[in-house]
Every structure is written in C-alpha cells, then in structure tokens.
Design a protein around this nucleic acid. Structure first.
Lengths: 197, 197
DNA sequence: AATTTCAAGTAACGACTGTTAGTTATATAT
DNA sequence: ATATATAACTAACAGTCGTTACTTGAAATT
C-alpha cells in the first residue's frame, strides 16, 4: 500500500516536471535526458517511474480532459437560461485550466503527438465537448437570447480559441484572479466590447 | 537571371511543402527525410535549395510577419472611429491569414523553435503588433465607444486567440468566405453574441 | 537482523537526426 | 558543340533519441 502511494507521489513529480518541460519546449523537442537533468537524475532512471515518454503525455492530456468533462456536466445539469449556461461553462472551463496552467498548455498544444488509438479517442472527446457548447449556443439562438445571424461554428470556435490560449498569456500572479477573468471573458463574448447604447 | 528565378521557384516549392509538413507534424517532429520523401527526392538534395531546416522556418515566420505589419499599417493610416479601425484590423488580419493558411499555422504554432537572435526579433515584432491593436482598443474606450470596464490585456489577448486559431479549423472550401468570416468575427467581438435589446 | 522495496546508477542498443562532401545526369545558353 | 547551371544522387559524419538490462545503495518492513 505505502509503496503505491509513495511511488505515485514520485511519479507525480516526474509528470509535473515533464509538463513544464513539454510546455516550454514542446513535446517533440523535449528529450528524456532534458527531463532527467531537471530532476537531477539520469535519463534511464526515469523508467523506474514511468513506462514511456508518451505515457506522460497521455496522463497529462486525459486527466485534463476528464476535468473539463466533469465541469461541463455539472453546468449542463442546472436548469438555467442559455446565456447563463454559456457563462457558467466559460467560467468552469477557465477554473479547470487555472488549477493547472502548465498541464492545460500541454493539453492544448501537444495532444497531437499522441499515437493511435489514443489520439483518436482524444479528438472524439474534444469534438463531443465542443458540440455540447455548440448546443448551448443553439439553445440561445432558439430562445431568442442570441442573434440568429451568427455562424454557430464560428461562434463556438472563437469561444474555444479564446479559452484555450489563456494558459499561454495568463499570469497567475497578476491582479485579476481566474474567477474574475472568467466573468470578464464571458461578458466580453456574450455582450461584446461595445457599450450598450 | 534565369538561374535565380528558377532557383527561387524550386526553393519556394520546398518551403511550401515544408510548411504543410510543419503544420501537420510540428517543426521538431518533422524530419528533413520526411520533407524530402514528400518531394520525391533524397534528404541531402534539399540542401541544393535551402541552407538549413531553420532557414525554412525563418522564411515562413518572417514573411508572414511582414504581411501582418503591412496590413495593420494600412488600417492605421485611415482616419476612422476606433470600432471601424478595430473591425478593419480584424478583417485585414484574417485576409492575410486566408492567403496562406498553412504558413499562418506555422507562424502561430512553430515560431518558438526559432533560435536566437531570430526568436527575440520575432517576439518583439509580435508584441509591437499586439500593442498597436491594444492602442486601438484604448482609443475606443477613451472615445466612449467601448466599455471602460473591460480589461484591455484580456480584450486584446482574446482577440488574438480567436484570430490565431482560425487557420486550425477554417476550411477554405466551406460556405463562408474569408471576408464574410472577418465581418462576422469582428461583429461578434465588438457586439457580442447577445441580441441588442 | 534479514528481507523487501524504492530510487537511483552504469552501459549500451539500434534507430534516427541535420548536415557535409563530392559526384553525375540533364537541360539551357553561348 | 561547348560551357554552364540546375537539381538531383550516394555515402557518410557525429550527435541525439527513447529505451532496455542489469546493478547498487539506502530506507522501510517483517
């Protein structure tokens, strides 16, 4: 038992350091020797803790994916207006990312280096997630809350682009905290920059 | 003379094919042997046309950067309202990307693999470009066109995220053409999703 | 005190990396 | 016909890649 806990703990250290490295240099350009050096050990020693380089990437990508799914499921379960749902979805997504900005960056930028069949599974989960946001937008159009002139694919892709780049520029030490960021981002996408006349 | 033209032409072919490969696999994961294979030649033969792998990346990144700068300079030269300027900037940016979606994707995702001092130069140009968009937003706030409640950094980063991910999902064969896409995107960011009551 | 577990080490493998040196066949220009 | 330029070739380099096999010292458990 204690072996498993302690092993997991060290394995977690390896994975977290790997996330930093993958975020900084990209998965393909990050070598196992780089990672080992950051941890102060030899490259071969990494394999006492992990099965392969890709196992690290898989763990990072799929753990984040599970968090996103969980957050969205909770948002969907509440019976509120589409604007409210969209707003909650945006805030939830941002808060999941804020809990681990490094893993979020890897999730977003490096998932393409997953091999099959993991890549396929990952992309299916992602499409599913996006489509559920798209449904919320469609509900909003149907209920008359949102303009019917907007292209739904464009709207949802714009939304995701904005969300997914956040880990690249957001400074967790900055004045604005993740929750406030979520509020503002939701407001900006729903109401736009323009002052309501 | 004719040597230069013909050489340039073949060099261009190599660079364009490299852009496709870099977009698909990422710069680091794309090998010169992959590229050569796509062109039906041997890896060593590439070096008749280009100096190095990174020269290709440099040429892709800096050529795109020049196009973006040119587009923004023209937008800035016109004396119009801030909303109009922002709108024109967005449309211009999208049209530059649409002219070469592949190079745009490389520009956005792979520039970090530039070595110094090119990386530094690239990032400085990019900061400058972003700050000029930020100025337009600030003008809009000052003139009362835009809300003064918005965080300007958040606004400009959201804008850029939306713009920069477009090459990843936009299908040039789709119903909506780049100009319409620019119109809609500008409208969405300025006016939001919500119907004006 | 003996045994097991953990986290590291050394050495090495086969494959792949970007790149070079030098050569050759083909098309164009003189 | 001769010279030149283009675009390809073969062979090979020094280095790096992820990973395996096996070993070792220290800590925890029995």
């Amino acid at each position: 038992m204690s072996e498993a806990i302690s092993n997991l703990s060290r394995k977690e250290q390896v994975i977290r350091k790997a996330a930093e490295l993958f975020k900084e240099k990209g998965y393909a350009a990050a070598s196992m020797r780089d990672l080992a050096h950051l941890l102060g050990i030899e490259a071969a020693s990494l394999y006492s803790h992990i099965k392969s380089k890709e196992e690290i990437l898989r763990s990072l990508c799929f753990d984040m994916a599970a968090e996103f799914q969980k957050s969205l499921a909770e948002v969907e379960s509440k019976d509120v207006t589409a604007s409210e749902k969209l707003r909650n979805g945006i805030i939830g997504h941002i808060q999941v990312m804020a809990k681990d900005l490094t893993a979020s960056a890897v999730f977003m930028n490096e998932h393409r280096h997953l091999s099959q069949p993991y890549l396929r599974d990952f992309l299916l989960m992602r499409i599913n997630y996006i489509n559920r946001f798209k449904s919320i937008i469609e509900q909003g159009v149907k209920s008359g809350e949102f303009k019917d002139s907007i292209d739904k694919k464009l709207a949802v892709m714009t939304l995701f682009s904005s969300l997914n780049w956040m880990p690249m520029w957001y400074d967790p030490g900055s004045a604005i905290d993740p929750l406030q960021l979520g509020f503002q981002l939701a407001d900006m996408l729903v109401n736009g920059l323009k002052k309501n006349a």
